[in-house]
Design a protein around this nucleic acid. Structure first.
Lengths: 202, 202
DNA sequence: CAATCCATTGAACGCTTGTTCAATTCAAGG
DNA sequence: CCTTGAATTGAACAAGCGTTCAATGGATTG
């Protein structure tokens, strides 16, 4: 079952990945043991080492693949057009993508500090590449004059934080549907960068 | 050195609290050992148990006290007036408070899952009380007509996520001062709930 | 000075951790 | 049917975990 490791490949067996993902998301990397992962897969702990060199690689693989998929998915469906269309495309994509992958998102934001130095740098770089996608949209929109952003970088971080936060509270059993939520977040996002807004109280 | 435990008191010695805070924020609750905390204080592990019943209580104490301080600080400086003033007060308070306590904030958002059931419920309740402060402002503003929020609850979560995110990227050595950042976030927040915004493209 | 008291030590407890590896099992190929 | 080779087991390893506690120490009080 040895596995060719192409540049974008998952190194680890899919069953193991799924179990590790679930458990890391629920309890945190440091709190989950290799034996727990093995038991979820239905196997002894030693068997995991046929598929992964060690626990750290398991975490890194999950995070790296998640970020790569995120970037690829966005590249595949990125909207072209004026800044408004591009921003709406990004917003809706981001909310939808994060709603569909709560565990991956949780891990990728919470377990950064459990990555070794090199792995951390790699994931950090991927994350910055993704943030840059939004930052470019905002910068273009500001240049053209359809957006007013007091600070492009802060606006990027603010909007991404706002949107990503959706996965901390959304439940499928709740009052709102996914597309409701998508729409509401887009509404808030568009407002937050609107130009038509220099005549406010205070 | 036994300590009176009034309702809002910290149970644990301040040196231990400080060490645990630093280490939990840096490496995560599960990854930090009692021996590491003890060594940071300059003491043997056993000595910690004079001040705390166990490791879990250490975490819970940090989170509970943080949330209580947050609520008290806001109660002390909450602005009264029209919704715009109240929202600006909240926004600036939240950003400032979170910039000043990066470790507490980090822990309180990241270590929820390491709390025992009862402790989790207690912290969760405090958090909801705090979120309700903002939600009330938004609801009042929407009723009066100065805000347009498509969904009060989602707007609350969105704004809080956006503002809280400041502590993930802000560095004192960076391009912007704390009051710069405060102002920028207020600018984005005010826009995100503005009424004067029904005539947009798309 | 003696008595008291409590913070602290340092060793020990039973258990779990990540990881290794000889031995075994098991399926596929000739 | 036998051989080959890889997947898996199960035991073992050293290390570290949270927590306990008799013994020690050093200051405070009478």
């Amino acid at each position: 079952m040895a596995r060719k490791t192409g540049s974008h490949a998952e190194i680890t067996g899919p069953r193991i990945r799924a179990a590790a993902l679930r458990l890391f998301a629920r309890h945190g990397y440091a709190a989950v043991s290799m034996r727990q992962i093995a038991s979820e897969v239905g196997v002894q702990a030693g068997a995991l080492y046929t598929y992964t060199p060690d626990k750290q690689a398991l975490l890194f693989d999950l995070m790296r693949v998640h970020m790569e998929n995120l970037l690829e998915s966005w590249a595949a469906e990125a909207v072209f057009g004026d800044p408004w269309e591009r921003l709406e495309g990004f917003t809706r994509f981001h909310v939808r993508y994060h709603l569909d992958r709560p565990d991956e998102v949780f891990i990728s934001y919470m377990e950064l500090r459990n990555l070794d130095t090199d792995n951390f740098r790699a994931v950090e770089a991927l994350r910055r590449r993704y943030e840059m996608q939004l930052q470019d949209i905002l910068a273009d929109g500001a240049k053209v004059g359809c957006f007013t952003v007091p600070d492009t970088k802060v606006a990027t971080m603010g909007i991404i934080a706002m949107l990503t936060g959706v996965s901390t509270w959304f439940r499928d059993t709740g009052r709102l549907s996914r597309s409701d939520v998508e729409g509401i977040y887009w509404d808030m996002t568009r407002r937050s960068v609107s130009s038509r807004f220099t005549d406010l109280p205070a």
